[in-house]
């Protein structure tokens, strides 16, 4: 096994799938010679040729249409949208077209497409680069949305996404690209979509999170342990569809829950998790389910980012309210 960062694990997943399935195509803005602006596709064009890994003109909607057309010719396209903040330009292709391909054709045509895109705050980007817009696509029936939080998960989940016969939006948190390494098998492996992962077991409180917030939640759990609280951290990994079994089992065990998201309170996935918990496990609850989120403003200017983004301290504060209710 090799030590890999998340970006290396992603490149590795793409390499495995390009090798395994001749119908897999990787393309987007600057993904060829340049290997992507974050080097997610580093070396892939050289290894697999310009026919399989290629640059496109600079137009996200065009990339979306290209993706759909290639899928109609039997390919398994894996386009990159350079930053998910640019998703508005390709929204019709994703939510208007790909999401309904199978449905509108009564199952006659599918769209085995994985759209990869970086997102997430904390790295001082210009505007429209860091926004957490996953709620937009997750609210569209027909699209699966995956957000890995570790290199190991990223590789297994990306391979599963590419092999899925329906469209998947695969979101890669910018801050996690190179924040740490872990052991990642060099061979191909899959992690099923729609399955959460208990990243830390506990008995007093369940924290549900995804993306970079998984790591803030783990930090919070460590601090709370010093105060004798046993906190479980569940990484949702797939935010559409949710892994309802794991979520409910955890709440039934701990009786208390906090849901954390980097997105604004009105925008993300947390409200959906809270609703599912209250619909399905109200009698197991000892306290209201609270959320830790960003405030409902537009994504902040870089100099205000550190205060705006939710962090471990915010999570500890909210967790204590729930724990002492």
């Amino acid at each position: 096994m090799a030590q890999m960062t998340m970006i290396q694990a992603i490149t590795d997943a793409l390499r495995c799938e390009l090798k395994d399935d001749e119908n897999v195509l990787v393309f987007g803005e600057d993904v060829g010679v340049n290997g992507g602006v974050f080097r997610a596709t580093e070396g892939l064009q050289k290894e697999f040729g310009e026919d399989r890994v290629f640059d496109t003109p600079l137009a996200e909607s065009g990339i979306g249409g290209l993706t759909i057309g290639l899928a109609l010719q039997g390919y398994r396209p894996v386009p990159e949208i350079q930053f998910f903040g640019f998703v508005y330009e390709v929204m019709d292709s994703i939510s208007g077209q790909l999401a309904r391909m199978r449905y509108r054709t009564g199952g006659a045509l599918g769209a085995p497409v994985t759209i990869r895109s970086p997102f997430g705050g904390g790295v001082h980007t210009p505007e429209m680069h860091s926004d957490s817009l996953e709620g937009l696509v997750a609210s569209q029936p027909g699209i699966k949305v995956v957000v890995p939080s570790t290199p190991y998960d990223a590789k297994g989940l990306l391979i599963s996404s590419i092999r899925d016969n329906d469209p998947v939006v695969f979101l890669e948190h910018l801050k996690l690209y190179r924040s740490f390494r872990e052991e990642v098998p060099e061979e191909s492996y899959t992690i099923p979509l729609g399955k959460a992962d208990v990243k830390r077991e506990g008995t007093d409180l369940s924290i549900f999170a995804y993306g970079a917030m998984v790591h803030e939640s783990l930090k919070a759990a460590e601090q709370l342990e010093k105060e004798e609280y046993s906190v479980e951290v569940v990484d949702l990994r797939t935010i559409q569809p949710l892994d309802i079994e794991t979520i409910i089992a955890s709440v039934e065990k701990t009786g208390r829950a906090v849901v954390v998201q980097e997105a604004q309170k009105q925008a993300g996935i947390a409200a959906n998790v809270v609703s599912e918990i209250t619909e399905r496990a109200i009698l197991s609850l000892e306290a209201p389910v609270l959320r830790v989120t960003a405030p409902d403003t537009i994504y902040p200017f870089p100099q205000a980012e550190a205060v705006w983004l939710p962090n471990a301290k915010d999570i500890v504060e909210t967790a204590k309210k729930v724990l002492t209710f």
Binding site: S61, G62, G64, G65, L66, T67, I68, G69, L70, A71, L72, Q73, G74, Y75, S93, Q97
Partner: peptide
């Protein structure tokens, strides 16, 4: 845009 994709395919 989809026609461009079918044609490329």
């Amino acid at each position: 845009i989809q026609a461009a994709g079918v044609a490329l395919g």
